[in-house]
Design a protein around this nucleic acid. Structure first.
Lengths: 266, 266
DNA sequence: ATAACATAACACCAGAAGACGATAAGAACG
DNA sequence: CGTTCTTATCGTCTTCTGGTGTTATGTTAT
């Protein structure tokens, strides 16, 4: 694995990756024409349009005759950043580590993060289990599993996150109380967890209130960054799990501020 | 019953159909061994087991060493009946008819029925639209659509229905009020709509309370039948839509009892 | 009116996923 | 203990779908 700054471009389907790259290109250039993209990416104009349609559906760009323009960066960040930023191996490691905390019969809540999604793949063996989530891909997977009671948290669908949110979702969360919560955020400073979008923060906060044990899943790319909204202090989480690639000198500050940090091996 | 009168056996993958047939076979014989099924269906024992595992996951049969036995008929009816009984063309016709009632900007609620699912395919053109449903296949489809605000009704997942239900779902429904409700049931007498399962009835009743205009979608196979739970009198629905294959002398009684019945053409 | 752009409709290809059976290992029953 | 039933694993085959370009038709601007 050639790890590098934003490397690990694998584990993403070709069109998905191209779309993410196109999104980045558009954001960088502000606004471009379809033909520019044809040249830049070496695909037909038809394909470019299809990609742009998809990106528009997700709210990342705006199409108009003659080209496209970028949307507010917050949207871009929570979409593309999360798509490009795979860190697949790390997330799997974190998931394996988190798994040890789960025992058969427990009720588990998951938020809309790829980190949480990695956990789902491990659930088959821990059954029986009750799982509550608002993340559509997770819901789809869990519906297949025997011995897992799936509790879908409904709400308003967001194409950007592929999950449900808003007030209906927050209310659904509030009606529950899970043994365990696994969630992730887009940025983590030495004291707090952050996220760009208010909508999402709303739901995550509700989840924090509705779980006994709260676990924050953090791959190293998230550390030492911030975003618009402060979600919660790290001390609100019972455990913060980071991956092995996290530099030691980034972990220390967290512990100094009172957080319980565990490092997922391999 | 049984009798695939219209034998529209298409539109169902080979294994899915075989599974449905196996289910019917099991219900008919009460309990059978795997080997019986091997002979009856001409597939390997391995495949039989796989099919039975799937049926067990859906709650249709119970496996034990040496064979399988049928589960209470209510489960069978709401699962297999709905899978075998496609009546694909009829449902599409009903959906097209129902479509005329929807205008851009409306909020529409759908229950967990294949009839309602047929409607989803037509939504793309009516956009913008707000759609609320607890039916997973519908949710998946709607999530793809631009210009459709999707409001997922969460709850406890039922593998038999591939939808969400229970108290959480009923609560989510009660928090809403839609312009239109399209729903279906398993049986319709000349005065009432029926369904076998209490859980489902609970949700459907909530939906009836949370919509201004209520539409019942009925393909002719449902008529002149009853089931355990009486859902509601037909007069509670603003419109009852039946397909063209419905014998006239079955429609008259409905009208005599005060229901508004419309016939979907083609 | 014409050129530039966008969408729709078709067809093709490839890779992935599904379906299936054979064999072998494992578990329950007598 | 052997017999019978069940599950696991693997390889093959097929089916399907996703991704794509090409051509044709529609739309908007100049």
């Amino acid at each position: 694995m050639t790890t590098d700054v934003d490397g690990d471009t694998t584990e993403l389907s070709r069109p998905a990756r191209r779309q993410a790259e196109i999104a980045a290109y558009v954001v960088k250039h502000g606004s471009v024409s379809a033909n520019d993209l044809v040249e830049a990416f070496g695909v037909s104009v038809m394909t470019v349009h299809r990609d742009l349609d998809e990106l528009e559906r997700q709210g990342v760009v705006r199409k108009y005759r003659g080209g496209v323009s970028a949307q507010p960066t917050s949207v871009f960040e929570s979409n593309v950043a999360y798509r490009l930023n795979t860190a697949h191996a790390e997330k799997a490691a974190i998931a394996r580590h988190a798994r040890a905390m789960i025992e058969p019969g427990m009720s588990v809540m998951l938020d809309d993060s790829t980190s949480a999604l990695a956990l789902v793949d491990l659930f088959e063996d821990i059954a029986p289990l009750t799982v509550a989530t608002n993340f559509l891909p997770a819901i789809t997977k869990l519906a297949q599993l025997r011995d897992v009671t799936l509790l879908a948290l409904g709400g308003i669908y967001s194409a950007t996150h592929d999950s449900f949110g808003g007030m209906p979702c927050a209310e659904a969360v509030e009606a529950l109380h899970a043994d365990l919560l696994f969630c992730s955020v887009s940025a983590v400073s030495s004291t707090h967890a952050f996220h760009q979008e208010e909508e999402i923060v709303l739901v995550k906060r509700a989840m924090l209130r509705s779980a006994r044990t709260k676990v924050l899943l953090v791959d190293h790319a998230k550390l030492q960054r911030t975003a618009l909204h402060r979600l919660a202090p790290l001390t609100d989480f019972d455990v913060v799990i980071v991956d092995e690639k996290t530099p030691k000198d980034l972990i220390e500050p967290l512990r100094d501020h009172g957080a319980t940090v565990e490092v997922a091996k391999l």
